[in-house]
Design a protein around this nucleic acid. Sequence first.
RNA 1: UGCCCGAUAGUAUAAUGGUAGUACGACAGACUCUGACUCUGUUUGUCUUGGUUCGAAUCCAGGUCGGGCAACCA
Length: 555
Amino acid sequence: MSEERSLNFIEQIVEEDIANGVNNGRVLTRFPPEPNGYLHIGHAKSIVLNFGLAQKYNGKTNLRFDDTNPVTEDTEYVESIKNDIRWLGFEWAAELYASDYFEQIYQFAITLIKKGLAYVEDATAEEIAKHKGTPTTPGTPTPSRSRSVEENLDLFQRMRNGEFKDGEKTLRAKIDLASPNMHMRDPILYRIKHAHHHRTGDKWCIYPMYDFAHGQSDSIEEITHSICTLEFIPHRPLYDWFIKELEIFPSRQYEFARLNLNYTVMSKRKLKLLVEEGFVKGWDDPRMPTISGLRRRGYTASSIRELCERVGVQKRDHVIEIGLLEFCIREELNKTANRVMAVLDPVKLVITNYPDGLVEELTADNNPEDESAGSRTLHFSKTLYIEREDFMENPTKKYFRLGPGLMVRLKNAYIIKGESVEKDADGNITTIYATYLPESKSGGDTSGLTVKGTIHWVSAEHAAKAEVRLYDRLFTSENPNAEEADFRTFLNPDSLQVIPEAYVEPSLLEAKVGDRFQFLRKGYFSVDPDSTKDKIVFNRTVTLKDTWAKESKKA
RNA sequence: UGCCCGAUAGUAUAAUGGUAGUACGACAGACUCUGACUCUGUUUGUCUUGGUUCGAAUCCAGGUCGGGCAACCA
C-alpha cells in the first residue's frame, strides 16, 4: 500500500537532489526541538518526516536540541524528548545541542562585525520596535547603527565579559531597514541574559537568538535538507543571507504545514499552562495530545506513525479530525488486542432456573481476528453482573438486548430471557431476574433459536474489581484557538470519568502496565502506571464504533 | 492596505497538460455469539474570471478567500 503512495513534495525535492548529485547524493536531516516542553503529536509528524526521509534515502538524522534560551529550558525536557523519539521507533545518528556551537556562533558574529554587517545596539526593545517601522512603512536607523567596526568589536567583547545588564545592549545584523520582509530589518543576533544554562552553566551571559543559531547549526552539521514548519518561510532569506556572508555550508530549508487536530490545542505554551494550572495531571495525562499522554492512554507508536503517513506532507494548512487518529488505533487494536469482558456500570442478574452453587467452565476465544491468540476459561454461575444499559424495562422496537420477555445471548454462554426486576425505594433496578435455556450453551447450541443481541457479563462470585478511567475530548470546541474567549474556557468538564469499581474477568488481575485489551462491546483499554498490587487501573484508549448509540440518539 | 505562503467532496489526500481517484466520515444494506470487525452500495469536490492549448485541477494574468510576518520566543 505504502509502496504505491505517491511522493510528497519534499521527497520529490530529495529525489531530484540525489539525481542531480547535490551533496553527492548525501541526505542528512535533523529533528530540532527546543527542550522547553514535552513532544506532542504535531512533533510526531516532523519526526516521522525527518527520520523517515533519512531511512528512505539511505541517510541519517541528527537529534539537535535548539537550546538557545536558558530561561525556558530544562534537562527534564531533554530526557522526555529522547524517550518519546525512541518510543516512536526512531534512533538518531548524533545527539547534538546548539549550545555546543556557542563559541563558533560567537565567531560568526565577530565575522559579521568585521565585515561591517553587524553592530551593537544601545536601544531598548521598545525603541528597536519603534525604529523597525511597520510592514507598510520602512524602518529608520538608530544612532547605534553607525558605530565603527572597532567600537562594535569592543562592545561585543564587553557584552560577553558581562559588563552590561540584561537588555542593556544587543547585537544586530546590519541588513536593510526598508526590507518588505520584517525579518531582514536588522534582526537581533545576540541578547544579554545572565541566566544559568542547562548545559553551559554560567559560562555565557550572552545567547544567540534562534535565527542566529538554527541555520548556522544546520550548516555546522552540514544538514542537507533542513525541514521546518510554514511559519519559518519568511526567515529563510535571512538564513540564506547568513550562509552567503559567512560562507558556510549551504543547508537548504523546506517548509511543510504543521499537524493540527481538532478538539485539542497543539501549542507547547498552552499545554504547559494546562499542566501548571492543574487542568490535567501532567504532561502525560491521557487526555493530552502529547506523545507521553497518548502512550499512557494506550495509543501505540505504530498507530501514531500511521496517522502521520495518512495525513501526508504538504504546504496547505489543515486540521485533522480526531476521528482519523481514533480510526488508526482501532484498526490496529482490532487485530492485536485480546478480548475480555468487563462490566463498567453493573447491575445484578440472577438466573432463577440455574442450579444454586453450580459453577461451569466455559471457553472463550481471545481474539476472533487472530486465531493464534488462543482461548481462555470463563466461570459461569447463577448470579452475574451485566451492564445496566443492556436492560430496558420498556424496550423500544429496535432494542436487541434484555428486557421483560426479551431474549439475548450471554457471550460465550447461554441464551437467557428476561423475567422480572427488583427495585429500590427510588425506583432504580437492583436485580434482574431471568431464566436460561440449558440447551443453548455456546459451542453446543441445540435450541434452534437465534437471538439478535449478545451481551457481556461477569460472574458475581468470580469477578475482580478494577478502576476504570474513561476519557473524552479535552475541549468542547472543535478549535479552541479560533474562539474569542480564552482557550481554557472550552475545557471539557467531562473529559475524565472515573469508575472506581468496575467488575472484570479475574484474569485481568495479572495484566501488566501498558497491556492492551478490548473490553467486549466497550472499547479498547490499557493498564495505567497508577496500577498497584491491590488495585489495577485501566484507561480507555478509545471506544468501539457504536452505531447503536447513534441510532438511539436519532430516536 | 507592504511582503510571503496557500486554495480539489464534511475532513484529509492523489492526479505533475490527457477518464477527477483514495481514505476517514455520513447514509443505506448484507453478515454477525461484540449494534464491533468484514463486505456491498450511495452521496458530496477542482475558489472565481479571463487567457494559452486539440485538451487545464495542473501553465499564465486579474480577483476572492484563508494563513503567516512588525518577541531581547522558538
